[in-house]
Design a protein around this nucleic acid. Sequence first.
DNA 1: CGCTTTTGACCGGCGC
DNA 2: GCGCCGGTCAAAAGCG
Length: 451
Amino acid sequence: MDAGGDGGHVPTTIQFPVKLYSSDHKPLNEVDFFTDRKDDIVLDDRSKFEDDDYSDLNHKDINLEVELETMRDENRRLKQELDLVKKKLRKHEEEKRDEDPKHANEVDMMPMPFIDLGMASLEDENSRSTSDGKSHDERSRLQITNIDGRDRRDEILEHVLPCSNKVARLNDSKNDGSIDQATEATIRKARVSVRAKSEAPMITDGCQWRKYGQKMAKGNPCPRAYYRCTMAAGCPVRKQVQRCAEDRTILITTYEGNHNHPLPPAAMAISSTTSSAARMLLTGSMPSSDGIINSNLLARTLFPCSSTMATISASAPFPTVTLDLTQSQNSLLPPAGQPHNFSGENNNTALLPQIIGQTLYNQSKFSGLQLSQDAAANGQVSRAGLADTLTVINNPNFTAALAMAISSIMSGGGGGSGDGGARTNAGVNTSNGGNNGSVNKKDDEFCFRRN
DNA sequence: CGCTTTTGACCGGCGC
DNA sequence: GCGCCGGTCAAAAGCG
């Protein structure tokens, strides 16, 4: 995300709502995705496309059919892979339970092999909370490599890094740990941007920052300030702060990187959220431009109760998640002139953790499957949405990342009450990348906004 | 005096 | 190769 892109993109909204049904017309959210029925998912497009309509399918439609079929094949393959992994996991779990009953629930909590989710603070927490003394990172690697006795990291990596052609594939890095480094490098490039109305020069997010630079960015009369985390020596986390060009009351804070030190609870929520979002952005993608769509699905999955909030730019080299709090400012943010405080130290505090916690809480209840009730009500469908959905739910990293995100929020005190209403307008917005004379043409943004 | 901020210079990536 | 641009560095200045 860059200044120009932040500064007033007005995305064109194209809706791709979708409701999924299994082959026996059972709503998909009631379907066990980890059964064979997953392959039988069909799109309930009857409300939109009558049979006669298919005769009018143009080449794009046909291409979509081909893509969809390809996607189904891929899903079958992934499912078989997943089944195999599940069997191995069960076996592993049983063996582990036999060995040491106190580990009995460990696999349940992390039901799939997953890449290091890498939030330093969470790793710290995990390492503290586990009795075997292994860090989360260590255990992740063990799971990846020991599930069936062979190294599966390449396969998993295929799910993690497909969205960026510029990220080196690590075919030669099976045994030296460089996968983690490369993944981390990619993750570091992923950014999370928070848009919030504020008269204060900087939002209070619980961390200590030192300003190390300021630049005028093209297309924005407001300077962009660069900050580095100073809570620990060598902490790689940086953030950029800039006012929106079109509405200077909007403060845009862009975070990049993962802290290498424990965080205070105040900073924990936003840090883990940005990290989780960034990782989900990267993990929920496909090898083509469709990856962007998947990322959007993640956005509306991750933030089901606030479709105006989540914006994801998945394009390389800096995929970016934007949390737009300006839409809900009246109820969520303190009055103009007061610094925003996400630290949970006063009455209106923990706002961001609350938002995120609530959305993740909702997500945890709906498992990411009840994606578009509104869409179904409107009778709108999308084949791209189907492929999109199938890929995401087939991605082991999705669940793992989601679980980690949820656990991070819960442990960070941002659980939120949750309204249970995972409603979302599954609108996929596309901007032309020229948002307000965009500085960075590399970011093609796909946004969600309530119409 | 030590820390932070400011600000011009420098560097690397990218497009033409 | 050149220019543009974003990002970073580091010396100087400011501040408590």
